[in-house]
Design a protein around this nucleic acid. Structure first.
Lengths: 375, 375
DNA sequence: TTGTATGCGTTATCAG
DNA sequence: CTGATAACGCATACAA
């Protein structure tokens, strides 16, 4: 006598796509009942519900999100586009996004534009085809206009920019107050007695670099110091770029007594060059940077830097997305979230001990501890 | 007279889910024709094909991958689970995976287990529900058995482990030859004249740390040196852990003249402590670490370290996945890819200049250049 | 070369 | 409280 295929003893032999229909057949009820029991619908008998749940566990039923999304017209997928995923900043932001998203039942599809607009465009297509519920993006360095984002709006998919964005007011975005960051760092250098403060600036078509520079300029002005254009060097923010830029500054008739760099790597380069020339940091040249990279705590002396609140930015971006989902249908209203940066004062800019507030230091220590990761 | 809704002049007013059915109606052909034209089927008239493509572009038709996946039973989604996404290693591996995957038309869903098995289990459920075509995973630190991965196999979803995995032979995996890495680093220290070489070891239930330690032991043995258990310290691989461990070693009756650490962060801690005690690196104590973190090039002296080929690992993991897809149906055969580590010799372990080969140095420089990222 | 019909797994709309 | 049925958008076996 052949064994019955429908025997409850057989869990599931091979590739086992158990569907709601299977559960329905097995229990002798309708698919509707199964669906309702599984989604905890109100009009459902507690007895049948338990029975369904039990059977589902037993056959280890796995819901098919694709089918559900197709039916409902809304998926639980969230698209994220970043220029690249390496480096502390974007990795941390993605970490923040993913953590918040998964808590809310969303899965995150990650895309890299590799700083290339064409790639970015392709990423958008892919995400739209994947029927994502929303798209979070930090534009690539080569993105000069918003045309390819129009399609996203046209499809009614919520769109949130974070950190990097182009000028244009009709977009939702969460950004850091880069101006305040530049201002704080520069003011701090001024308070340390520096008077000829140079600036390593980034590409000026990106909001972040433009704002950091403006913060620097405004800090100087509000302290009655006229900016000196020869002290502003546009550099690519790499270690080598920092070395070269620092060398150029030292070749000036009147070298600076401090540098505010729009990035930490360039500042490291500056530090290396200064040391190689036998100059002391901060006594001869004080340094303050941007991003609060891990390297700031490794360099000697430790580097003063502006923290970008990476994880908060990720969380905020996701929150903004959910707000957009809730506000669906209502007329478009632009939403912007602006995060406040935090200056971490370290030895590279401390000319006297008096400014070293205890909170700042304990915060820095805490950061160091929490940032440690290992394989 | 009311304007016709089907007028070709109306591109698409609001949220516009243009489907193949719409294109078919507009062109007066069947959906089959549309489907074939779009998927470049062979039996399709070039004229009609062009017409379809043109109309699709005009109405900016966006294919619905969900529907296609549902129909075909196979999606173009790839699930990736990592303990966390921050830090150089996993970010780089994910970078490698995403780059290879998107090139092959796959989208990557990223999940973080946060070093928590329960979370890892949930991640698996999510990915299976999302109908991913495969799952790539590096297990969490708290994962002690493979039970929750059985379900994945049962569903017939290709599963690839990378870097971290538990013992067990019937799995597909791409790993680094950690044993060779530990061996090379230790041999290098021996060649520098070190004789009492200590080891900072990681949790021994993870393959990677066990193998690094074994490589260390075997290198000692093959050089006729009996391992000294008091020189092996299990530490949590943080900077602080490294400081404490180094302090313990220095308190020994016979302190070591070198340390091979299973991680770079701990080595940085050791370096800091040595400096604070007035000891010189590498003259008094030579240091070699693991992971080739960015900090190795920031610390002074630069830290010798074993590179883990992060991106190659990501690429290899994806390749292994595609192989599994192609080998579908055939009986299971375990596949393992073992990557060879590369030792980067730097000042922290160089007691004499003679060993500093030019290739090593140029490779290190190249690495430094290519790793620079900025916001 | 093109069209017709069906089903993938789910949810929503109706009746009972 | 429960059930039958349609529909989501696409791909394919089968017919023309």
């Amino acid at each position: 006598m052949a064994s019955r295929r429908t025997s409850p003893k057989e869990p599931n032999p091979a590739g086992s796509p158990v569907s709601m229909a299977d559960l329905a057949r097995e229990l002798g009820v309708s698919m509707t009942t199964i669906s309702r029991a599984l989604s905890d619908h109100h009009s459902i008998g507690p007895a049948t519900k338990q029975a369904v749940l039990k059977l589902a566990k037993k056959l280890n039923y796995q819901p098919n999100h694709l089918a559900a999304a197709l039916r409902k017209g809304k998926s639980k997928l969230l698209g994220v586009i970043v220029p690249y995923i390496e480096g502390r900043f974007f990795a941390s932001v993605v970490h923040g996004i993913e953590t918040a998203a998964s808590k809310a039942g969303y899965s995150v599809i990650i895309c890299q534009s590799s700083e290339d607009v064409a790639h970015e465009r392709k990423n958008l297509e892919t995400l739209l085809s994947a029927q994502v519920a929303g798209i979070l993006v930090s534009v690539s360095r080569t993105t000069m206009d918003f045309r390819h984002f129009e399609k996203v709006k046209k499809h009614g998919v919520p769109l949130v920019f974070f950190d990097r964005m182009l000028d244009g007011d009709d977009v939702n975005a969460v950004v850091l107050n880069d101006h305040a960051g530049g201002y704080q760092a520069t003011r701090h250098l001024l308070e340390q007695g520096c008077r000829r403060i140079a600036h390593f600036a980034g590409t000026q078509h990106l909001n972040i670099y433009k704002n950091r520079r403006q913060g620097y300029l405004d800090a100087l002005l509000s302290h009655g110091i006229a900016p000196d254009e020869s002290l502003i060097i546009e550099c690519d923010m790499t270690v080598e770029g920092g070395q070269e830029s620092m060398a150029r500054l030292l070749a000036l008739p009147q070298p600076p007594d401090a540098v505010f760099s729009a990035g930490d790597s360039a500042n490291l380069g500056a530090l290396q060059l200064l040391k190689s020339r036998g100059l002391r940091v901060p006594q001869d040249v004080a340094l303050a940077g941007f991003s609060n990279e891990a390297l700031t705590l490794v360099a000697e002396p430790n580097l003063t830097s502006v923290d970008q609140r990476c994880e908060e930015m990720g969380q905020a971006a996701f929150r903004l997305f959910t707000e957009l989902v809730e506000a669906e249908g209502t007329p478009f209203s632009q939403r912007q979230v602006v995060l406040q940066p935090q200056l971490f004062v370290r030895a590279s800019s401390l000319r006297s001990g008096i400014d070293e507030s205890p909170e700042t230091n304990s915060a820095a220590k805490k950061l160091q501890r929490s940032r440690v990761h290992h394989t």
